[in-house]
């Protein structure tokens, strides 16, 4: 039987579909009590990884466990892990309530649970309607309701924000956070960091089937070297002064400004004053997680990026 820890562990997971390597030697763990974002561009192997974790796809090598056990050894998996998968289906001619009752009996929970989860996702009024007539957002809510039927300890969601309206996304965010605060585990995949930035505590960033970063979101934010853009009266004099002050990373931008790394705006302005250089404008760059995410994952399709984009990227390096 499983250990009830709520821990997700992926170790050296690899999946080969014919000649295509979807996931390559992927490792990470997800702890209970937090929402972990599983991020990567489309085709990075996120869905395949989640499906291997859920026993739907057989790994070529490596292991994926929930509560210390592979999915098929969980006993009553519906009570341990609930999953919202992108392609999760519904019979179009089955009502929402009946759909949930079918799986309530499979999981072994009372029928009343079906109405309870419908209420939880805000679909009580649509309980008697056929799911075939639901909007994409309603279907996503239905998928969440199905995942919650067994009151699971672990929730795995694959791109759950797809099709949800802003209200739905806000609801999902609050729901997942309170779910995690109860000491449960949430793993949520997305190809947009911005989409989950406000929801997740930690992130696993994958690209080309490999882990690029794994840790708290806060550390990632701190990793970002802030830059200061300054427009001086004399670029050469300020550059010399800054180099003397120990700044190594200096770059002149095409618009005549200097990009300074390793100093904040105040230090740059002080250096300019000491060098007798006028400052016409100064700007501190905000840490942009999306750009870090971009940098971590851009390798995947680097060969196809248009030239201007490459230059811009080069400026960051």
């Amino acid at each position: 039987m499983h250990d009830g820890s709520g821990l997700i562990a992926v170790q050296n997971l690899t999946k080969q579909f014919g000649s295509v390597t979807a996931v390559q030697n992927l490792s990470f763990t997800v702890s209970p009590g937090s929402v972990t974002g599983f991020l990567g561009p489309n085709g990075a192997g996120k869905t395949t990884t989640l499906r291997m974790l859920l026993g739907l796809v057989k790994p070529t090598s490596g292991t994926a466990t929930i509560n210390g056990r592979p999915f098929h050894q969980l006993g009553r998996p519906g009570r341990v892990v609930g999953a919202v998968l992108e392609a999760q289906g519904f019979h179009p001619n089955r009502t929402a309530r009946n759909h949930l009752r079918v799986y309530a009996s499979a999981i072994g929970v009372p029928d009343a649970q079906a109405d309870q989860v419908l209420g939880l996702v805000g679909l009580s009024t649509a309980a008697g309607r056929n799911v075939g007539g639901f909007s994409l957002g309603m279907k996503q809510r239905m998928a969440v309701a199905t995942a919650l039927l067994g009151d699971p300890q672990v929730l795995v969601l694959d791109e759950p924000a797809n099709g949800l309206d802003p209200e739905g996304i806000a609801w999902l965010r609050n729901f997942l956070q309170s779910f995690a605060r109860m000491g449960r585990t949430v793993l949520i995949s997305s190809h947009l960091l911005a989409e989950v930035e406000q929801t997740v505590d930690q992130v696993v960033i994958v690209s080309r089937g490999q882990t690029m970063y794994y840790g708290p979101l806060e550390h990632l934010r701190q990793q970002q070297q802030r830059r200061v853009f300054v427009q001086p009266s004399d670029v050469g004099a300020l550059a010399t002064a800054l180099r003397e002050a120990g700044v190594q990373a200096l770059e002149q931008l095409p618009d005549g400004r200097l990009a300074v790394s390793g100093m904040d705006a105040k230090q740059v302005a002080d250096a300019a004053l000491r060098a007798g250089v006028s400052v016409y404008g100064i700007q501190e760059e905000q840490a942009d997680l999306e750009q870090i995410f971009f940098r971590l994952t851009s390798g995947q399709f680097a060969g196809h990026a248009p030239a201007p984009y490459q230059q811009q990227q080069g400026g960051w390096a």
Partner: peptide
């Protein structure tokens, strides 16, 4: 695609 949920809810 209900087979996904069927397999997710069975031992």
């Amino acid at each position: 695609r209900t087979i996904t949920t069927t397999f997710l809810t069975a031992p």
